[in-house]
Design a protein around this nucleic acid. Structure first.
Length: 108
DNA sequence: GTACTGACTTTTG
DNA sequence: CCAAAAGCCAGTA
């Protein structure tokens, strides 16, 4: 039978997402790259199915833009975690400052 | 086993 | 700046 260590792609994704410290973020492609894969889409799919329990808002699209429709839900979280944001307009159309918020794994 | 879908990425217009 | 198309991988039917 399988050991307690997660070998599945989805479980590994959740492990990385859960390892992202507050105030920092990673892109879907980066999470997939840490797993040695390019399945950015699979990363997002796993998060959607995971629902709550994991800081999904710390995972953004390329450039720091948020997923579709997640801006309103993620914004209060960024505000609580002091994540660096770039606002084009106050209250509308914001994005994460990926150049500053990008998390760098320590065991790289 | 194949086919379709998807919280993506990148390039081109 | 925005819009559209192709490419990519993993999960699910």
């Amino acid at each position: 039978m399988s050991d307690a260590t997660a070998d599945d792609f989805g479980a590994l994704v959740l492990e990385i997402v859960d390892a992202i410290p507050p105030g920092q973020v990673l892109s879907y492609g980066d999470v997939a790259a840490l797993l040695g894969s390019r399945a950015a889409r699979a990363v997002g799919t796993v998060m959607a199915r995971s629902g709550g329990g994991h800081p999904w808002w710390r995972v953004v699209r390329s450039g720091g833009h948020l997923p579709r429709g997640l801006e309103a839900d993620a914004r209060p979280h960024y505000d609580a975690e002091h994540t660096p944001l770039l606002s084009s307009s106050p209250g509308l159309g914001y994005r994460v400052d990926y150049a500053v918020a990008m998390w760098k794994p320590e065991n790289l």
